[in-house]
Computed example of a mutant assay.
Amino acid sequence: MAKLDDAYANSAYIDGAEAYPGRWAAAAEAYRAALADRATLGVSYGPSERQAFDVFLPEDAPDGVCMFVHGGYWLKFDRSYWSHLAAGANARGWAVVMPSYDLAPQVPIAEITQQIACAVLAMAERFEGPITLTGHSAGGHLVARMLAPGLLPENVVARIKRVVPISPVADLRPLLKTSMNEDFGLDPAGAEAESPVLQPAPSVPVSVWVGGQERPAFLDQARWLAQAWGAEHVEVPGKHHFDVIDALAYPASDLVARLT
């Protein structure tokens, strides 16, 4: 075991962790069915099969569009597990876009970052009005990376109302000391280049979200990003790494209020 494997292990410290993916997938499938023709699935934004997103529309013309980027340490999952998390923003009149992306080790993390930038551009072309971005864990890293200078065109950045990284991996340098880096293939320069904490503080409002019962490493990661950027920092009492995202499904939640 590499030095920091345990520090970045989530499942081993969450009761019933093995049941979560199945519950997520079932809830997501049910939400897609309930939305019927207000769900458009598999919109391509890039050349590979996984470079596609699903679109979930509110009942009326959308007031804006929110992108949710999934986690899984850049190694697993896809957009089909998370559709139900669009419910909160949809109920408040916002469209929601959920992309998949190619995974490590087939592609490096830097390439995944570029893919999500392409997804944001495709979303911005599809929808008018304000944009918000949120993502969980590795997805939190990816939405934070969208605020790197020059990654997105200025006219798109100008439309971004807020970015909410949830339980983000904001400093990739500690991952050099994990076994996962065999798949990531990061070296020190690559880890630095992909670390949002080392980016200039953005002008876009940012709220960093994390569960109060998360692993100390993730509490640190969230705090580091909030401090580096002078951003809002919210620790949600009683929530761990797997259930901190549940609030996205509820229109009255503080998390959804930040995004809509």
Rank of each mutant, 00 (worst) to 15 (best):
I112H: 07
V120S: 08
T113Y: 00
G140E: 07
H136R: 06
H136V: 08
P130K: 00
V120I: 12
E125M: 01
A148K: 15
P105G: 12
I109C: 02
Q106Y: 10
A122F: 08
L147D: 13
A144T: 12
L121E: 15
E128T: 12
A119H: 02
I112G: 10
L142G: 06
G139H: 05
F127E: 08
R145P: 03
A110M: 01
P108T: 11
L147F: 14
C118K: 13
A124V: 00
M123D: 03
G140D: 04
A117M: 13
I112A: 06
G140C: 04
S137F: 00
G129A: 03
V143D: 13
R126F: 12
I131H: 01
T132N: 06
A144I: 12
G135Q: 09
I131C: 02
A122H: 13
L133V: 11
Q114M: 09
A104Q: 07
L142T: 03
A119I: 10
V143T: 14
E125S: 10
H136Y: 06
P130N: 01
I112K: 01
Y101Q: 05
L151T: 13
T134K: 09
T134G: 06
Q106R: 14
Q114G: 12
A110D: 12
I131M: 01
L142K: 06
A122G: 13
E125I: 03
V107Q: 00
A119F: 05
A119G: 10
S137E: 03
P105Y: 10
S137Y: 01
Y101I: 02
G129M: 02
I109R: 09
A148F: 04
H141G: 06
T132I: 01
T113E: 15
A117I: 11
P105A: 11
A124C: 11
L103G: 08
E125R: 10
A110R: 11
G129S: 05
V107E: 03
P108V: 00
L147W: 11
T132G: 07
I109A: 10
I131G: 03
V143W: 14
Q106W: 09
G150M: 11
P130H: 05
A110C: 09
G150S: 10
A144R: 11
A117Q: 05
A148N: 12
Y101N: 05
E125Y: 00
A138Q: 01
A110W: 04
A110S: 14
P149F: 09
I116P: 05
H136G: 02
I109H: 06
S137W: 01
I131T: 00
M146S: 12
T132P: 03
G129V: 02
V120K: 06
P130T: 00
